[in-house]
């Protein structure tokens, strides 16, 4: 293969990986925003709690049982999903539900507060040090010759992102619950009038959003090999940018925005300098918001007068 072409291909694949990583977190952001118009800043912490749950459950299973790594991964993933979903729902009940009719800024501040509380809770309950997270994903043998292009974990992250996006899109388009979610998003009062239990819909949204965050947390920790209480903040910021870029509230938008962001960072790092990858990310955000303030796939909301 021509070295220049190979280099370009490697950068594109690395951009796709970064994009998939951001997308796994951005999907939850955008779903919650779509339904209750709240930027859930504690979403990154739910992601971090997912990773910690998998670390603990996986660690215990690795020591006490002789299950194969894939089974352990599966069990940890399920545990992380349940645990994070419980956190997400509790968060909504404690911090957001009482503020549902308050100004949007109030709920936003509440979200930032919850983010700090959860970070410091994990800091106190666990440790401030980085903890090693041994990869639970065994290398696929068919990928070994091409590992300079694409590693197994990267492939798993990409595939998962697409499956999750597909699942969410189908869920929202074709199920009863999806219909109820769309109705709640459009007009909460009218939705209640036609008999939709919006509390149930919102709880469900937090369950799904937190579950995707937990899946993201586990897979990304497999990729980075280490976690601490602060990973959610850093990842959350990038995912938030990606969600805004794609048009916050739109599921395909979150994925598209994430890929645009990941690709910009990767190509920028590859052809210009990796010292400025954050600068490229925010530059593209500014450019897109100047020309399309609602984001790539966001719908312009008509202000009713």
């Amino acid at each position: 293969m021509n070295p220049d072409v190979k280099y370009f291909l490697q950068l594109v694949l690395s951009g796709l990986t970064k994009g998939s990583i951001y997308a796994l977190i951005a999907l939850g952001y955008t779903m919650v925003y779509g339904i209750i118009k709240l930027i859930n800043f504690a979403h990154g912490e739910i992601y971090m709690i997912g990773a910690f749950t998998a670390l603990i459950i996986g660690g215990v299973l690795q020591i006490t049982t002789e299950l194969s790594p894939l089974v352990i991964l599966g069990i940890s993933l399920v545990a992380a999903v349940f645990y994070s979903a419980a956190y997400g729902v509790t968060l909504e009940k404690i911090a957001y539900k009482p503020l549902r009719n308050a100004p949007r800024l109030t709920a936003l501040i509440s979200a930032i507060g919850m983010s700090l509380i959860l970070q410091n809770f994990v800091l106190l309950a666990q440790t401030s040090d980085f903890l090693p997270f041994r990869s639970m994903i065994p290398d696929f043998s068919f990928l070994i010759p091409g590992k300079s292009l694409l590693t197994t974990t990267q492939l798993v992250i990409m595939v998962t992102t697409f499956v999750v996006m597909l699942f969410l899109t189908l869920l929202i388009k074709f199920t009863r619950m999806g219909k109820a979610m769309r109705a709640t998003a459009q007009d909460k009062v009218m939705a209640q009038l036609v008999g939709i239990d919006i509390n149930r819909v919102i709880t469900f949204t937090f369950v799904i959003g937190s579950a995707t965050a937990a899946i993201g947390g586990v897979l990304i920790a497999n990729h980075t090999g280490q976690i601490n209480f602060y990973i959610g903040f850093l990842a959350g910021i990038k995912a938030f940018v990606a969600a805004v870029l794609g048009g916050i509230g739109s599921i395909p938008g979150a994925v598209l925005g994430s890929f645009v962001l990941g690709m910009t960072e990767s190509l920028g790092a590859g052809y210009i300098s990796s010292a400025y990858d954050n600068a490229f990310a925010f530059l593209i955000l500014i450019l897109i918001l100047i020309f399309k303030p609602s984001g790539l796939l966001g719908r312009n909301e008509v202000e009713k007068v």
């Binding site: 070295p3 280099y7 490697q10 950068l11 694949l13 690395s14 951009g15 990986t17 970064k18 990583i21 300079s148 990267q154 990304i220 990729h223 980075t224 602060y230 990973i231 850093l234 990842a235 990038k238 960072e265 990767s266 190509l267 790092a269 590859g270 300098s273 990796s274 010292a275 990858d277 954050n278």
Partner: peptide, 20 residues
């Protein structure tokens, strides 16, 4: 000679550059 971002999740782009 390059800088990398502290706390980054994925350093594959810059490592690709090193390998190149």
């Amino acid at each position: 000679y390059e800088g990398i971002t502290v706390g980054g999740i994925d350093y594959s782009s810059v490592l690709t550059k090193v390998a190149n």
